[in-house]
Design a protein around this nucleic acid. Structure first.
Length: 237
DNA sequence: TCATTAAATTGTT
DNA sequence: AACAATTTAATGA
């Protein structure tokens, strides 16, 4: 576990066109608004294990995943890390904290080498003041994630590992929150195991079961979703 | 472009 | 946790 915030600063640069294309809310802006946003957007390359934001630190940016895989976690009363959510490409997070200009309430760490985009807090507020499209995006985002966290409570209460994996996968394939994912989610079975809180062996077995049911197809270094509704509606057997 | 080798990931016990 | 099998990425002719 390494804190590499300094390297995040050093690696910061302007976004390329290809990276901008992967940022979903830019499409909701007018050309003028878009120009403001793009001028302020930063891209940073984070190595595996880097902390993107740290609990308690003052908020600096609204973050999004351009490429790679992140995990959001907090601490329980005993100080044990607890994973809240996985963040695949296209996912943006921290707007609640940015809105209130508070300190980050969780840790976000890369599970592997990733490209992370950041919009400065002041620019976020400027867009919120000026842009209807931006407001719509943020509102939709908050709403969708509320649904996902409610679903996550259900997942936590399930003791059947196959169900946990199925529902967690369905969350990662959410096209509204993570539009960069598409048909194939780039994730190793080890990474998924970290997110779900199971051993890799058990995840491997659960994935095999889901593949047998034609819900997913296992690929090298990733998973292809065949039936998202089927994953969501997995029930106890 | 192809063959060889190293590294990463998966499947299994 | 350990190991073998498989897939991909890197290297160099």
């Amino acid at each position: 576990m390494s804190e590499v915030v300094p390297s995040l600063h050093q690696r910061r640069r302007a976004p390329t066109d290809a990276e901008l294309a992967g940022i979903p809310w830019l499409a909701r802006l007018t050309p003028e608004e878009r120009q403001i946003a793009v001028a302020e957007l930063q891209i940073s390359e984070a190595l595996a294990g880097d902390l993107v934001c740290r609990m308690g630190r003052p908020v600096t940016y609204w973050f999004g995943v351009v490429d790679g895989l992140l995990k959001m976690s907090g601490e329980n009363a005993e100080g044990q890390a607890m994973t809240f959510a996985g963040l695949p490409p296209g996912g943006w997070f921290g707007e609640g904290t940015v809105l209130k200009r508070e300190a980050y309430r969780y840790n976000v760490q890369t599970l592997r080498r990733s490209l992370v985009a950041g919009l400065p807090v002041d620019t976020f507020h400027r867009l919120l003041d000026q842009s209807i499209g931006f407001n719509r995006f943020v509102m939709n985002q908050l709403n969708e994630r509320l649904g996902q966290f409610i679903a996550a409570r259900e997942i936590d209460r399930m003791n059947n590992p196959d169900l946990r994996v199925a529902r967690s996968l369905a969350a990662l394939f959410n096209p509204v929150l993570y539009p960069g994912v598409g048909e194939v989610l780039r994730i190793t079975q080890q990474e998924l195991a970290y997110l779900v809180g199971l051993s890799r062996q058990r995840v491997n077995e659960a994935l095999s079961n889901l593949q047998t049911q034609n819900l997913i197809r296992i690929e090298y270094g990733g998973l292809r979703v065949l039936d998202l509704e089927g994953l969501r509606s997995q029930r106890n057997v």
